Simulated scan of single mutants.
Amino acid sequence: MADYTLEEKDSFTVLGIGTELKSDYTDYAGINKEKADFWSAVKQDGRLDTLKSLATNDYIFTVNEAVNGKMMHYAGVMTEESLPEATRVIQFPKGEYLVVKGEGTTSEELSNKLTGIAFGQILPEAKNFAYVGGPNATVEMGLRNGLVFGEMWIPIVRK
């Protein structure tokens, strides 16, 4: 099984700019294309830089959350500030989180790799904890040896 830890985290807030993913949740190619197009747009039009200027740390959050039956995808940062163009203030609860660490050649590769490991390997095999919904995030933490490194944070409950 992939390397992971279970960590207690305090509640935190992520300010996000998002998009609704319209592909079926089983259409990984479609979902990944929508996410890539979204990230390209927020980088090119300056919205990501605007978000980063409000951040309390250097982390960039890629958040997935079901909202009113819609699959939402956000670029976000940890901050207490707000922004008119922000789509959502995302509250992450205090509690236990599945934390998966990794690295990739790009932010997109890191996010896809960690999501695949967490939802494709760890959670299906987990015997004593489960993901029951709520926002989950890939947290890009920086560059090391030419690779993007970070973690996936998924709120869990003990079975």
Results as ranks from 00 to 15, higher is better:
25 Y>V: 15
90 I>A: 14
40 S>H: 14
54 L>F: 02
14 V>F: 08
106 T>A: 10
53 S>I: 08
159 K>T: 14
124 P>I: 09
107 S>R: 03
60 I>A: 00
16 G>A: 05
14 V>P: 02
70 K>W: 06
89 V>C: 08
141 M>L: 15
92 F>V: 07
73 H>Q: 14
116 G>A: 08
52 K>G: 01
15 L>P: 06
145 N>F: 01
58 D>W: 13
49 D>G: 01
140 E>K: 10
63 V>Q: 10
79 T>S: 13
132 V>M: 03
139 V>A: 12
64 N>F: 15
5 T>V: 15
3 D>Y: 13
82 S>M: 04
140 E>Q: 06
87 T>L: 10
103 E>F: 01
40 S>P: 05
9 K>D: 00
94 K>V: 00
9 K>A: 02
136 N>R: 07
47 R>S: 06
128 N>R: 13
93 P>S: 12
24 D>W: 11
135 P>L: 12
130 A>D: 07
137 A>W: 03
37 D>H: 09
39 W>P: 00
58 D>I: 13
71 M>Y: 15
129 F>N: 04
18 G>P: 05
25 Y>G: 09
156 I>Q: 09
113 K>C: 03
28 Y>I: 05
113 K>P: 01
120 G>K: 07
48 L>P: 00
126 A>C: 09
123 L>M: 04
33 K>A: 15
48 L>H: 00
47 R>V: 02
8 E>L: 07
105 T>G: 01
137 A>V: 03
76 G>S: 10
33 K>N: 10
158 R>M: 12
102 G>E: 05
150 G>P: 13
13 T>E: 02
40 S>I: 09
88 R>A: 14
102 G>A: 07
145 N>H: 01
79 T>D: 01
8 E>V: 04
150 G>Q: 13
131 Y>Q: 03
133 G>M: 08
83 L>V: 08
142 G>I: 09
152 M>A: 03
97 Y>F: 15
128 N>Q: 13
144 R>A: 14
115 T>W: 11
145 N>T: 00
137 A>E: 02
9 K>P: 02
10 D>I: 01
30 G>D: 12
33 K>E: 11
107 S>F: 04
21 L>T: 00
41 A>Y: 11
49 D>R: 00
149 F>H: 14
125 E>G: 01
24 D>F: 15
111 S>W: 12
9 K>L: 07
3 D>T: 12
17 I>G: 10
